[in-house]
């Protein structure tokens, strides 16, 4: 690995957005292929971030800042990437279900998924089954994540799954659910997958999408 890639990785882990951007620009100037900058620099750095986070070396805010730095680097090389250079890791649609206004947890899940390289579309709180079905048609995600924090709104997860089935969308997307009253048992019962926190959500997404 060349020195400049090492520097990109190092600065990415340190969350040094400006330095990452400068280094990516320098790498382009040196004639390194955009694809290599992406894979051997930015993505390699984020992988390392993931490992350090799991080991407890890095904290959530650091991971998120590293993710920001990666995105800034991505912006620089995007125009230079050719079709097929980016392995699409997947699109995740997130929502807090109908009647529920809690979004702190699901926002955290969104940020961690983005940090892990997923494209995330968060359609926000109080999302009815109809709204979710519409969004799935439009966005065509690989995975849907639903959040509910109230015992009373959990039922809307089941309603949403039924609505997806009725629209013939249910075998086109994977479904995961979470939120403090939700349990693995409940998820099994409604035909969904469960993750207890944001880190587990990333692991679950990786598993469901075969990464």
């Amino acid at each position: 690995m060349t020195q400049i890639m090492e520097d990109i990785i190092e600065n990415l882990i340190d969350g040094q957005t400006k330095k990452v951007v400068a280094l990516v620009e320098q790498a382009i100037a040196e004639g390194i292929a955009a694809k290599d900058i992406l894979n051997k620099g930015l993505l390699a750095g984020m992988n390392e971030v993931g490992v350090l986070f799991k080991e407890g070396e890095l904290f959530v805010p650091e991971v998120l800042v590293s993710a920001k730095a990666m995105n800034a680097g991505m912006e620089v090389i995007k125009p230079l990437l050719k079709e097929g250079d980016i392995q699409k890791s997947g699109t995740v649609l997130l929502a807090t279900v109908k009647g529920d206004l809690h979004d702190i947890g699901v926002n955290l899940v969104a940020m961690m998924l983005e940090g892990a390289g997923y494209e995330v579309v968060n359609i926000g709180v109080d999302a009815s089954p109809e709204k979710i079905v519409e969004s799935v048609k439009k966005i065509q995600p690989d995975l849907i994540g639903m959040s509910a924090m109230l015992t009373t709104t959990m039922a809307s997860m089941k309603d949403t799954i039924t609505a997806l089935e009725e629209s013939g969308l249910s075998d086109k997307v994977k479904i995961m659910v979470g939120g403090s009253p939700v349990s693995k048992d409940y998820a099994d019962k409604i035909g969904a997958n469960y993750a207890g926190d944001a880190t587990a959500a990333v692991e679950l997404a990786n598993e469901l999408l075969g990464r």
Partner: peptide, 13 residues
């Protein structure tokens, strides 16, 4: 908004 991904949080955490 949220403070989780703000530099200030990283600086102080």
């Amino acid at each position: 908004g949220n403070y989780l991904s703000h530099e200030h949080t990283v600086m102080n955490m």
